[in-house]
Simulated scan of single mutants.
Amino acid sequence: MAPRRCPCGSGLSYAECCGRLHDGTAAAATAEQLMRSRYSAFAVGDPAYLLATWHPSTRPSTLDLDPDVRWTGLEVLATSGGALLAAQGTVEFRAHWRAGGRSGAQHERSRFTRADGAWRYLDGVALP
């Protein structure tokens, strides 16, 4: 049986890609890598990872994921900053979903910043 592909669309297996970030054996090196790993956390149903990678100043106290939503694909549309040695970055993406026989996409520009040396999701703005 072939290894499961990572939901983030990298082409790698989940274990080689976002799985390493989710289990804590690796940390995101860039803002885009963190965004991709957060998308994958939604896709595999890992709210603990989402909370852990959320900046403390904007993080909710709890996070409940809708089990009926199936995340079906990710498009990274643009990035600004967020490189290996940067302190801040933005990533514009479109995340596709299916639920209850309907399908749609979440188009967002997310901001990321470093906290204690690690990339964290700060906030996002929904785009049309």
Rank of each mutant, 00 (worst) to 15 (best):
T53Q: 07
V125N: 05
Q33C: 01
Q33K: 08
E16N: 13
L65F: 02
A83G: 10
F93N: 00
G19R: 12
T72A: 12
R5L: 14
A29S: 10
S110W: 13
S57P: 12
C6H: 05
P3I: 06
L122Q: 08
D23T: 11
G45W: 00
A29Q: 10
R38K: 06
D68E: 10
R98H: 14
R120I: 08
V69C: 04
W119S: 02
W97D: 04
S61N: 13
R109P: 10
E75T: 11
G24Y: 08
D23Q: 13
E32D: 04
S103R: 12
L51W: 00
S103C: 09
G45A: 02
A52W: 00
Q33F: 10
Y14S: 10
A29R: 11
A83P: 00
G100D: 04
T72K: 12
V91R: 03
D46W: 10
P56A: 05
L65M: 07
T58I: 04
A31R: 00
W54P: 02
T53N: 02
L122A: 06
A118Q: 15
V76L: 13
G24I: 07
H107N: 12
G117Y: 09
L21F: 06
Y49C: 01
R20M: 15
A26M: 04
A126W: 12
A95P: 08
A31Q: 03
D46I: 02
P3D: 12
L21W: 03
S110R: 13
Y121T: 07
R59V: 06
S10F: 06
D66A: 03
M35D: 07
G100W: 01
G104C: 07
L127G: 08
H96K: 14
D64S: 15
S37C: 08
A52R: 09
P56V: 00
G73T: 07
G11Q: 05
L63A: 01
L77F: 15
T113R: 10
R111C: 14
C18T: 11
R120H: 13
V69Q: 08
W71E: 01
D23A: 10
F42H: 01
R20C: 14
G100T: 00
Y49L: 09
E32A: 02
P67F: 08
A118H: 14
Q106D: 15
R38Q: 05
G11M: 04
S40M: 03
S10E: 00
P60R: 03
L85K: 15
L50C: 07
W119H: 07
F42M: 02
G73I: 05
P67L: 03
R38S: 01
Y121Q: 05
Y121V: 03
L85A: 13
D116G: 15
G104P: 01
S57H: 12
L85P: 02
F112L: 10
Y14V: 11
V125H: 10
W54L: 09
D123W: 09
S103V: 01
A26L: 05
R120L: 11
M35P: 03
